[in-house]
Design a protein around this nucleic acid. Sequence first.
DNA 1: ACTCACGGGACTGCCCGTTGTT
DNA 2: AACAACGGGCAGTCCCGTGAGT
Lengths: 199, 199, 199, 199
Amino acid sequence: VTAVGLRERKKQRTRDALIDAALDLFLTRGYEATTVDQIAAEVEVSPRTFFRYFASKEDVVVRFLTGMGTEMRAALASRPLGERPSASLRHTVWVSMAACADHGDRALRVVQLILRTPALRARFLERQDQWRDDLAAELAQRLGIDSGTHLYPQLAAGMALTAFDAVLQRWSGSEGAEDPADLTDRAFATIAPALDSVG
Amino acid sequence: VTAVGLRERKKQRTRDALIDAALDLFLTRGYEATTVDQIAAEVEVSPRTFFRYFASKEDVVVRFLTGMGTEMRAALASRPLGERPSASLRHTVWVSMAACADHGDRALRVVQLILRTPALRARFLERQDQWRDDLAAELAQRLGIDSGTHLYPQLAAGMALTAFDAVLQRWSGSEGAEDPADLTDRAFATIAPALDSVG
Amino acid sequence: VTAVGLRERKKQRTRDALIDAALDLFLTRGYEATTVDQIAAEVEVSPRTFFRYFASKEDVVVRFLTGMGTEMRAALASRPLGERPSASLRHTVWVSMAACADHGDRALRVVQLILRTPALRARFLERQDQWRDDLAAELAQRLGIDSGTHLYPQLAAGMALTAFDAVLQRWSGSEGAEDPADLTDRAFATIAPALDSVG
Amino acid sequence: VTAVGLRERKKQRTRDALIDAALDLFLTRGYEATTVDQIAAEVEVSPRTFFRYFASKEDVVVRFLTGMGTEMRAALASRPLGERPSASLRHTVWVSMAACADHGDRALRVVQLILRTPALRARFLERQDQWRDDLAAELAQRLGIDSGTHLYPQLAAGMALTAFDAVLQRWSGSEGAEDPADLTDRAFATIAPALDSVG
DNA sequence: ACTCACGGGACTGCCCGTTGTT
DNA sequence: AACAACGGGCAGTCCCGTGAGT
């Protein structure tokens, strides 16, 4: 009763194969040095087909990150209004880290790839940038602060993401050995004084 | 006693013309939509010549950012050792902002362009990333903290750059109307409690 | 039951159009004075496409000669084994000349173009070089001679091609007036003594 | 009383330095992989200057061969008029080979480079082509034959060069082990019957 | 659904004419 | 007057991405 046709499954297999091949090549030869043609050749598919599954070369990697932004904002929005900003944001970051960690081994490899490859790291930072704006907007609304005049929302969101980034780096650097939750707590212990000094 | 040959001057003029034309086109049509051929045509120079002046299309823009990293680290290193981190970092950011602002109108336009264009923004973020590592290293050394076990250096550097970014964004968003020094002060007023809570 | 797809046909048409346009331009303006862009423009195709069909500008012309090498070897292989080398090679050269002459007026003009244009002449000589190796290999096999120790195969092939070249030059120089078959006979009358002195 | 100005000598030194640098780079990195800029940089001369001394990148190498044409013709002209063509031409080729072999180890390596690199091989063949015309003209004159009606001069010159080429190839292929004089003799033993059948 | 052919843009290398420099 | 830098132009390569066919 799966209701998933054979076609669907084949598509999914192709997609997975493409992702696997792409990540392998990216990791071994580097992102820039890998061409779409090579990825396609690896899976024995025409280059054109690659573009049916992914909008662009970067897209393969970036897809991993999509949705995280809205998730983050939702996580923040779900917190009680009276809570101190540091607590709300800590939770937000923690949820994101958990999502990452839960995706298993591949997630770890992708994160490592992203953090190590300049071009991809840039894309990641771009995303983070959007997340920051999202979080800042949510914060401004929650706290009734005007983003136009105050810098706090932007800064607070930025600090939270700085923490997120530091935690992620530590986590991936330790091959997943260090505990995300613990790292998050330690990071927030440091930045909390600034986050809660609003006003 | 000019000491500068006619040739030198002409070269400089061509270089400036290329930068101007490139920025104009980038700002009006967008970075991706502008081709090197168009830039060259604007200056009435062959495309080949463009590449004699700039290593790549991005290079025109990115050149503006070069050196800022080492400058930042130097600025931080020049501060007295006993000073509170928030003060040292505030000064560091302030110096960078001043450097930006002093370059005049063109600097403003370049910053706007960079912040608005994804491809360039990515490059900028890449740079910032390096700067963060530089700053973190310098901080760790100054304070005698081990980056391996503590998150503080990474976080502090990240916060400083978050502040820098927020200030830059505000400044460019206001068309240069808002005062960089004032913005910097306000940003650091917010994050200072976290920066100085080291230990 | 054409069995040839629309795609195939279109490709062939494009290829033919490119050859036509190229030869026309080469013949009227001269080879060096014609740019690939002009050829492409004539056919309303991007320059990029030109290079998808031909490896280089010279290639368009030289392709006229392609296959001649294998043809030559085949012609030689088709001769009875007992035949004297001079007769076999005479026939081989004669067949090639006939192929040239049969292509009509354009072939003559192309040959003239090749012989007169240094860059093309160079390519032509390169080809001849390969043909020589081909012929030498075939000869060595037919006569059971080891190319490693004896010079004969290489020399005989070289002499045959020298004859071919001389005939071609005379033919093109006389605007096609002189009879290829007759020229071939005369050339071989001279070199035959050497060709048949094997052993 | 050399009568050669300081200027002349300096020019000669630059030229030599360029040749040295070029050959060194070609032999170590390969011909295609070496750029004119690199050669110029090595000699601390502007790239433009390179082209003042050599018509093209290929030219540096091929110059090794320059003069050989006139030398050849001179060698042929120096033979007694009554001598059989095969003997005169054998001597001509022998002199050229000797000139090659005398230049020592580098000559061998340069010859190998030329024979192996398509672009250089093409130039070499072009040269040979000119030599053939030179030799043919000299032969026609010596023997009082009209090149316009008879094919003999062209053919004889072609055969001699075929022999030269075969010898050169064998010599370079054997790393200089085989004796040029012996190879020349063997080659001419084969082609002599044709060369002396003039009439 | 998959492939092939195509477009187009960035970039490099070779080579040359012109123009300023010494 | 010799020299070198500057700029131009063309051939050629590589890669990403798309629309027309099968």
